[in-house]
Design a protein around this nucleic acid. Structure first.
Lengths: 339, 339
DNA sequence: ATTAGCACTCTAACATTAAGAGTGCTAAAA
DNA sequence: TTTTAGCACTCTTAATGTTAGAGTGCTAAT
């Protein structure tokens, strides 16, 4: 059932107002914004109706109305105008993306940082795990007589954090080992590579067995780890918001923001989704997140999802500002990726 | 001037007590712990004397005494007994260090994490920058036709986060480039390498000029960046401490802990020092840190400083517990490094 | 359908009170 | 000379009451 135009208008005013002042909005306040020759009494009637429908609530009898999640949802979907950023803000955002960033992780981290600096919320970034990407290149580099670095290159990433203890071996051995790896693994997905490798290891490469076992182990670990690719930036910023003036809520917020698992679980569904912009309001299913909202923008290159970045903050959030910022960053990054 | 035994005893009781309960300690309370046939009046006299000497203060006329930084200092240096950890705690700590960790960074990060988990404060870690270490090995690895990874190996570290845009080049070219680099740079310190490289680049290697300029640029950046090697873990934990129930102080704390620069500046002097354990109480010189304390343990291998890890928290901190934990971790790591 | 008007509710700020904790001082006791 | 008992005094904290103001919800009139 659709709301009447008047109710829409009133709802919008209440939400706008509450987002700004974080105070229950009274009928009088609405009247001042709505001006139109409506009495407070009439407005009170309308407010009462919106309350009955589950959009609004009031904290106690003699208080104004505050928006419920349903109101924010409606506001974001249908009421909120698209606010423009100022020239300065756009310039600032663009200036933060000029340096040549050549890794997805750095790109997304940077986006999260910018977001957190310019909005007053915590910025977050998620890198697509790329587990089903194909291996472009794989290299073994001897660092010292008994350690080697394993490098795996996929379309969007370079995995290079795994140092192997090899026991004493020589350059030639390593070289040949690398070539074998490339022959077998290039063009395969990592998960496939693990399977194939496990099968082959038994039969063929006795000489390389130990080494390859190590490598397979690393790849398996990589597949297992699910949350390593979530970052947050500037959570402290978000504490300036009055909803966190209560230390307990602040702690709860920080511990959610600090937990890659929790962030990942909040994002899971949306991330699968290929929508460009996602607004998740007061996470419906989980009590723990009920007063938080999460707005994210997805990035992709040539149809391949790179990841996403966005904002996590109190449910009373300046959605207009946040969404404008995210859109601006999205387009800045798109521009960048063309080169 | 030395304190009398009795005053020492009383001071110790006050500090111990205050650390536990975070309440001004009254003469009566001291009497209960001191038992000995002393009246509260006498104790009051002694407390007043300690106050005159700058060890104690009272928040208002009718309140008990609280320790000042001078008292904590004295307490840590002379009064505090060495408390033993329980078997369980020791086991727990050791269990967190079994997995084979083969990088200094990972080791120190892990230590910081363990510290934060077991004490209720924020754990921190600093990796020695190793800028005056000699280069053991240097490698260039072609990742794709137009990007390469630069790897620099020193005694305690592997720098491997710099991806070069090279323009289209081939494997041979890269190979030879790497060999030249090794010839010139191995055995030199990074800072020396930069100087030598800058000089040579002019005359000799026209073919490699562009590539080497890139590499020098990366090395210079590395020398410039001062704070990349500071980590903190579990700052949220520390918020459980009552001194941070005021949101403003909590924010201030978090912003200090979140700033690598600030942590580094607090540690600078101590880190140079080669003492095994450092306790910094209510940083004397800087107003901003005056109600924080910092306890760190240094690690080294074969006489070479690897880094340090420790705790940052409120000046009223359970020094005994913290120091015991750090000592335990130190010895666990020492044990580990022997292998 | 809208509005004026009014009773009613709840908050927030402020003042008042009373109890309790603890000090600092002094004069007496050891 | 050191210790102690005793007491006046200060300050905190919690409980209680008071009041003004904001805002609602309802009803009867427009």
């Amino acid at each position: 059932m659709e709301l009447s135009e008047r109710r829409k208008k009133i709802l919008q005013i209440v939400v706008d107002d509450y987002i700004q002042d974080i105070e229950p909005v009274s009928s009088k306040k609405v009247q001042q914004s709505y001006l139109q020759e409506l009495s407070t009494a009439t407005i009170r009637g309308e407010l009462a109706a919106l309350e009955d429908m589950g959009y609004l609530a009031h904290p106690h009898t003699s208080a104004g109305k505050i928006p419920l999640p349903k109101a924010y949802r409606y506001y974001v979907d249908k009421l909120m105008g698209r606010g423009a950023l100022s020239e300065d803000e756009i310039d600032y955002i663009q200036s933060r993306f000029t340096s040549n960033i050549n890794e997805t992780e750095a790109l997304i981290k940077n986006a999260a940082k910018v977001i957190s600096d310019i909005t007053n919320y915590a910025g977050l970034g998620i890198e697509s795990d790329g587990k089903d990407e194909r291996i472009d290149n794989i290299k073994l580099v001897l660092l010292s007589p008994s350690t080697a670095l394993l490098i795996v290159v996929t379309q969007s990433k370079v995995l290079k954090d795994s140092i192997l203890e090899t026991g004493t071996i020589d350059e030639m051995y390593m070289e040949t080992g690398g070539e074998i790896l490339r022959k077998i693994f290039c063009g395969k997905k990592i998960s496939e590579a693990v399977k194939i490798g496990s099968a082959l290891i038994e039969k063929e490469f006795n000489r390389y067995r130990k080494l390859f076992e190590n490598i397979l182990h690393i790849l398996k670990d990589y597949i297992k780890q699910d949350f390593e690719n979530v970052f947050t930036e500037g959570a402290v910023n978000a504490l300036s918001n009055p909803e966190f003036s209560d230390i307990e809520r602040a702690k709860k917020f920080l511990s959610i923001v600090g937990s890659k698992e929790k962030i990942a679980s909040m994002l899971r569904q949306d991330n699968a989704n290929s929508v460009e912009l996602t607004v998740k309001i007061g996470s419906d299913e989980n009590e723990e997140y009920k007063d938080l909202s999460l707005v994210t923008a997805n990035y992709s290159l040539k149809g391949k999802a790179l990841g996403a970045s966005g904002v996590i903050g109190p449910i009373r959030m300046d959605y207009r500002k946040v969404i404008s910022v995210l859109e601006c960053i999205r387009s800045t990054i798109d521009e960048m990726l063309k080169n």
